[in-house]
Design a protein around this nucleic acid. Structure first.
Lengths: 336, 336
DNA sequence: CTGAAAGCGCTAACAC
DNA sequence: GTGTTAGCGCTTTCAG
């Protein structure tokens, strides 16, 4: 309600409002006494400088946007926490946008963020298509892509080496004697999927195992997608000896469904995931997976973004490829 | 880079910039042809109206703030998702602020949000103290408190009936024959804690069980806090037959620690939580708990907030107390 | 139907 | 040191 402005407090203090502005912004040229007087008044009336108006003249907003597909996937809160934490250190606020795997929503959000003049955007794109849309704005404001590589040296991104991670964990499965290994999850046009499935195929090829496209189930990234996929495979009596879930959340769904249909893990079926979300390490779960340094990824992304925002140098991008780590726990069994 | 303004496109279109403004805002009084011409130009040059500048004159920002103590507690992403989802339907953006259980950070964020002229704030306060700080601003902008009641009819809040939920689950433990029941977690000056511990005590009293203050361990809300508390109790050889964890996340920590020190749940010790986060229902966990309709709570909070923002009526608050539900799963055992 | 001009709350020269 | 003034990008009277 109280909409007290700089002019109000200028009137009360009996000075021009430029002086108030100076006092508030710690300018050198302002008498200490008047400054104190002004500050006191501001305090008394509960004056809060309008950052929006200031931003209009200074051409800044101190805000950035973070677009993620699904904040209820525990992977993203970890990343978001890192982003938000580092951003707040530099007094930046972050708009959280949950795209819900919806391309339209992602594009709408992106445009809204542009209109709100965010100074930069960190985005884990829903699909390659939206990435194509977004990349066109690369000359307009700093953008950091999360979790997906993008060709071209002017782009910024931070990703885990998905191909390598997928290779590692598939090799592990193979070393355990598995040859009928399913890959479950992902969406056809997402970089995360294509890289992980590539790693999976690489490992199979390297070990002279024929690739069976029927063993690749493209079904999304959510928990329920994992459950549904396993149920469908069971119904078709088309079960592998091991499953590589595109991410841990989906693997959790598979564990759920396995329980339901009376399959036990790892006795009947071995299972691995990707991400190492906090719940993968619970003693009761102990999911074998590929670990991503989530907090680190978030912090790295925001650091790159802030660097770009400050230096205005968008000509050459900053890329970070972080290394995956194989975490062997208890959801796999040797069948040799 | 491109910082094309309404004036630029006015010049190109050979009209005054007032006309451009009209065309962009679907004003009645504007010639269809000139309007089309203007729209076309906007498209070509990729003009994006500056929502900030518009907001300055229209006195709106279409943004709200959401303050949560810990976005990595799966409870909050569920709530945040609801908030964000409903907000985006009305074209509001939300600033996500992770206070990390830090009172200073919470206050800083709050002031920052005020300066950025958010139109309303949803806050799950870190403590009663910060709540006291925040409530003073209730006449200035709509605020909805989350997860904690607050005396006074002018305040808005949405909470679960913590007392009742705690009573229900404690009674359940008692019905199983437990009399030495520990309450673990929380912070002394938080409403969530005091209500839950109140329900716990109510149930004990009602059943003529003496309250042992040594059985109440105030240690925070995080997973690691649960682990530490259990380890400490084991070291003191001061173990109860059942534990009521202040929330599920902390309960997960207790499960962790139990495994480590060779205690099995529920054989050696029964365990219940609160919240029913997604992982509580995993087949391998099956935590007995009190369920909160998290998504609903988030949506309800934002609906109240938007209602208050639109109607400017801050005189009388809107309160929602949602009902807890006891979810009996497998972490408790009868000892009679 | 369209243009001119004032003003949203603030900062930043430029005078004095 | 302090006041005056222009202007950030936009909307909105008020004339015409």
């Amino acid at each position: 309600m109280t909409n007290v402005t700089i002019k109000d407090i200028a009137r009360i203090a009996n000075v021009s409002y430029a002086t108030v502005s100076r006092a508030l912004n710690d300018h050198k040229d302002v008498n200490e006494q008047t400054k104190q007087k002004i500050l006191k008044i501001c305090n008394e009336v509960g004056y809060s400088p309008n950052a929006i108006a200031r931003g209009l003249v200074k051409q800044n907003t101190y805000t950035i946007g973070l677009l993620v597909p699904d904040i209820t996937n525990p992977y993203y809160p970890e990343v978001a926490r890192g982003v938000e934490d580092e951003a707040s250190k530099e007094d930046y606020n972050v708009f959280l946008c949950n795209t819900n795997w919806d391309m339209m929503k992602e594009v709408d959000y992106f445009n809204l963020l542009l209109a709100k003049r965010v100074e930069g955007i960190i985005i884990a794109p829903v699909s390659d298509d939206t990435m194509k849309f977004v990349e066109k704005f690369t000359d307009r404001l700093p953008i950091v892509f999360l979790g997906t590589r993008i060709e071209g040296e002017k782009y910024n991104y931070v990703v885990i080496d998905n191909v390598k991670g997928a290779e590692m964990i598939t090799e592990y499965l193979i070393s355990l004697g598995h040859r009928k290994i399913a890959f479950i999850g992902g969406t056809k046009d997402s970089g995360t999927f294509s890289d992980r499935v590539l790693g999976y195929k690489n490992a199979l090829k390297k070990n002279n195992i024929e690739i069976d496209e029927n063993m690749i189930k493209i079904c999304g990234y959510r928990k329920v997608d994992g459950s549904n996929a396993l149920k469908a495979m069971a119904k078709e009596a088309n079960l592998p000896t091991a499953i590589f879930a595109v991410n841990d959340l989906l693997a959790l769904g598979i564990i759920d469904a396995a329980e339901n249909i009376g399959l036990s893990i790892p006795e009947d079926i071995s299972l691995v995931g990707f991400d190492d979300i906090p719940y993968a390490s619970l003693p009761k779960i102990r999911l074998t997976t590929v670990s991503q340094p989530k907090d680190h990824i978030g912090r790295e992304a925001i650091r790159i973004l802030l660097e770009k925002i400050e230096n205005k140098n968008t000509r050459v991008g900053l890329q970070r490829i972080v290394q995956p780590e194989l975490i062997i726990r208890s959801t796999c069994k040797s069948i040799v």
